[in-house]
Design a protein around this nucleic acid. Structure first.
Length: 510
RNA sequence: GCACCGUUCGUCUAUCGGUUAGGACUUCAGGUUUUCAUCCUGGCAAGAGGAGUUCGAUUCUCCUACGGUGUACCA
């Protein structure tokens, strides 16, 4: 029997969620859902100095916008709470105590100053590289391994600040299996006696993470590559607690890199290259500086998620457009790419465009409808439907709908006089006047309007390319756009005639 | 420095030893469209370098180079 799949997304609330973080959450979510498992949100706020006001709410809002909905977690309930690490202080103390009692951890009494001096000294002797606090150096430091029992008891009872460190001894390589990378081996001699409990009584990431994953019955740890190097410490912790049999599997995701040059994607790259790196807009509480998010740029969450999912993963076929359900169905950790992926904004836009092309027309219509009513435009439902239908394939973002055909529901802002002049001839006026007079007796339908147009083309011995631009500019002001006859339909008979009549005024000076 | 991870078209990627190395984005050239967008057809474009193993390596091993991550009382 396979054990119940439970994954978690465990951000620290230090700021907005960037696309790398969202993708991590997405993969953990997809994997859980694929296996009928649970996905939880845990807030890792063990560093009070770095927690940012509003970041927690922001993270939750981002996940909801993306459709990555936790089954449990901060803001979502669940029976393994509390899900905020700052609310679990007592738990970490209790488990730290166990480690001290079984000899896997020890107290460290070195002050910041002592540590600083020690590091400086060792760096001087060693080409600027300072020693690590580990099995070979700890005997020279002030800790419960070097101090007598009485001294330790004394320090403790006098409330002298201390940290608790994991005792890591030299030995055979530490080997573990990463779902994405395969077997990974670390030299144990390179591992330091990492701090588990800070002197402020808060746990470090390592302790809190392991304890919580165990207590919350996490089956698969899916996180960024930056954690790969500390995984040996985490494994050692599972062993120290005697939890090795219940240890989750590990999957370390590749990073998202900047589009140009080297290195991981940062907020600065987005500013520099002109694309968002956050899911939602974020205003820094200190600098008051606001960064746009994908939501504000007009991205559809499904398209955004589809795009992110494909950044480092594919299902092995040539399929690129996935619905949320298809993503869940097809996802597998084994097919996650190992190498980092350079971010490509063009492709993100392409995904959005594809979504708009395939989405139900009513989705576009209801968006446009709300724009219409917000601006008191008074357009019929028929107009809205038809409008969305003819413009849907010419937009990248849904809000493009607002302006792209504005000439069909409000006055033409400016006429492309240059193009008009090029195609203009005296016959054009006769043609248009003739057309206007015949509209009255013609059925107002785009096919009929086109037939009439062709008929007159014959009569006046003119070509499409000669007359159409004139016609188009008179009706819409610009050279490009959807079928002129469809446009006339939306304009209505009266307005069409009015605009065509106006041609005479437009060309008076020619 | 040390530890660890990585390296296929400009970009995202497919390939589980034998392929004309495939697809998508971008771009270019055609076609469709009176126009623009869409759409269709086609083109350009890749296995970091070097040793092995093998009848045969993009694929396995090693070395080098390059890149990334870690090396905090940050996560």
């Amino acid at each position: 029997m396979m054990k119940q799949v439970r994954t978690r997304f465990a951000p620290s609330p230090t700021g907005p969620l960037h696309i790398g973080g969202i993708r991590t959450a997405l993969y953990a979510y997809l994997f859980a859902k694929k296996h009928q498992g649970d996905f939880l949100l845990r807030i890792e706020d063990t560093d009070q100095n770095r927690t940012v006001q509003g970041a927690e709410e922001y993270i939750i809002e981002t996940l909801i916008w993306c459709g990555i909905i936790p089954d449990e977690g901060v803001g979502f309930g669940g029976k393994y709470g509390p899900y905020r690490q700052s609310d679990r202080k007592a738990i970490y103390r209790e488990y730290t105590q166990k480690l001290i009692e079984n000899g896997s951890a020890y107290y460290g009494f070195d002050t910041d100053e002592e540590l600083a001096v020690w590091r400086a000294n060792s760096a001087e002797k060693n080409n600027g590289i300072s020693d690590a606090y580990n099995f070979s150096t700890r005997s020279t430091m002030r800790n419960s391994l070097t101090l007598s029992k009485n001294e330790v008891a004394d320090l403790l009872s006098n409330n002298v600040p201390y940290v608790v460190r994991l005792k890591v001894d030299d030995g055979e390589d530490l080997i573990f299996e990463d779902t994405i990378r395969g077997q990974v081996a670390f030299k144990k001699s390179q591992l330091d006696d990492r701090i588990l409990l800070k002197s402020d009584g808060m746990p470090t990431y390592h302790l809190a993470n392991v304890v919580d994953d165990y207590l919350m019955k996490i089956s698969h740890v899916i996180r960024g590559e930056e954690w790969l190097a500390s995984t040996p410490h985490h494994i050692l912790l599972y062993r120290a607690f005697g939890w090795e049999d219940e240890m989750p599997s590990f999957s370390h995701l590749p990073l998202i890199l900047k589009p140009d040059g080297k290195g991981k994607l940062s907020k600065r790259d987005g500013d520099r290259l002109g694309f968002p790196v956050f899911g939602l807009a974020w205003t820094d509480p200190e600098s008051k500086e606001t960064s746009l998010g994908y939501r504000e740029k007009g991205f559809e969450p499904q398209a955004f998620i589809n795009f992110l999912a494909m950044l480092g993963w594919n299902d092995g076929t040539e399929k690129e457009i996935f619905s949320d359900e298809e993503l869940i169905h097809s996802f597998s950790l084994e097919r996650v790419h190992k190498a980092g992926a350079k971010f490509n904004y063009d492709k993100a836009i392409w995904y959005n465009q594809q979504f708009l092309k395939n989405v139900n027309l009513t989705y576009l219509a209801s968006f446009f409808e709300s724009y219409v009513s917000k601006n008191s435009l008074n357009l019929s439902n028929t107009f809205i439907q038809k409008y969305c239908e003819i413009f849907r394939e010419r937009i990248s973002f849904i809000h493009d709908l607002e302006k792209i055909g504005s000439y069909l529901y409000s006055d033409i802002e400016s006429f492309d006089v240059d193009s008009l002049k090029k195609k203009w001839s005296l016959k054009s006026l006769d043609f248009v006047n003739d057309y206007i007079s015949k509209i009255e007796t013609t059925e107002f339908e785009s096919i009929k309007l086109e037939e009439l147009f062709k008929e007159l083309l014959n009569k006046y011995e003119m070509g499409m390319g000669q007359m159409m631009p004139v016609f188009r500019i008179a009706l819409t002001g610009i050279m490009q756009g959807p079928s002129v006859f469809d446009s006339m339909l939306l304009l209505g008979k009266e307005e069409s005639i009015k605009r065509l009549t106006n041609l005479e005024v437009l060309t008076r000076d020619f």
